[in-house]
Simulated assay, not measured.
Amino acid sequence: EVYVRRLCQEKVRAGSESLRLRNLPLFPVLAAETVLVFNGQILRKPVNANQAADMLRQLSGHEHQVLSAVAVALGNRTEVALSVSKVRFAKLSEDRISRYLRSGEYAGKAGAYAMQGLAGAFVEHLAGSYSGVMGLPLSETVELLQRFDYPTP
């Protein structure tokens, strides 16, 4: 939790600094960061298909956590919210993993999958936020924007 919050705060600070350096009008800056945790270890984005396959084998038949932090900054004020979700994968055969890897969808995805893509079919159970697993927890985002009196749906 500390790690994902810190990364998110660094992103929102960088965005706010970019506004300041460009002399742009003061607007809310939003940033998000998502990490996947399995057995106490953060699973990052795989560097290749072999690493992606290893990650999917680890997740196969097991539950993992997806932590998504979202931050809003306006001027000197920053607020951060955290979404924690639990995802359980079905048991994945080697053939199923191989077919998924051929899609290339794993590239650039923490834990080698995107819930909103083909790997959504791997998910047996989700407890928490679907949008948080995708990378931007919408409920928390709206809540933060409301704290800044920013119009929301």
Rank of each mutant, 00 (worst) to 15 (best):
V4L: 08
R5C: 15
L7T: 08
C8E: 01
E10S: 11
K11C: 06
K11A: 12
V12N: 00
A14F: 03
G15W: 05
G15N: 04
S16W: 09
S16P: 07
E17S: 15
S18T: 13
P25H: 12
F27K: 15
A31C: 03
A31M: 02
A31E: 03
T34W: 03
T34D: 00
T34R: 01
T34F: 02
T34K: 02
V35I: 15
V37I: 14
F38G: 06
G40Q: 08
Q41M: 08
Q41W: 05
I42S: 10
I42L: 13
I42W: 07
L43I: 08
R44M: 02
R44H: 11
K45I: 14
K45Y: 13
P46T: 01
P46E: 09
P46S: 04
V47T: 14
N50K: 15
Q51T: 00
Q51N: 00
A52C: 07
A52F: 10
A53V: 04
D54P: 02
M55Q: 09
M55H: 06
L56S: 06
R57Y: 08
R57S: 12
R57L: 14
Q58T: 02
L59S: 01
L59A: 05
G61F: 12
G61Q: 11
H62Y: 02
E63F: 07
H64S: 04
Q65Y: 03
Q65C: 07
S68E: 02
A69L: 08
A69V: 06
V70R: 00
V70F: 00
A73Y: 01
A73V: 03
G75A: 11
N76M: 13
R77M: 10
T78H: 02
S83A: 15
S83K: 08
V87G: 00
V87Y: 00
V87A: 00
R88I: 04
R88G: 01
R88D: 03
S93H: 05
E94Y: 13
I97E: 12
S98V: 05
R102Y: 04
E105H: 09
E105G: 14
E105C: 12
Y106I: 08
Y106F: 15
G108H: 04
A110I: 10
A110E: 12
G111D: 07
A112Q: 04
A114S: 13
A114R: 12
A114M: 04
M115K: 09
Q116A: 11
Q116E: 13
G117C: 09
A119D: 07
A119N: 07
G120T: 09
V123F: 06
E124D: 13
H125Y: 13
H125E: 15
A127G: 14
S129G: 10
S131C: 09
S131T: 15
G132Q: 13
G135S: 03
G135K: 00
L136T: 10
S139I: 06
E143D: 12
E143P: 00
E143L: 12
L144G: 00
L144P: 00
L145P: 03
L145E: 07
Q146V: 10
Q146E: 13
Q146H: 13
R147Q: 14
F148T: 03
Y150E: 05
P151S: 10
P151W: 09
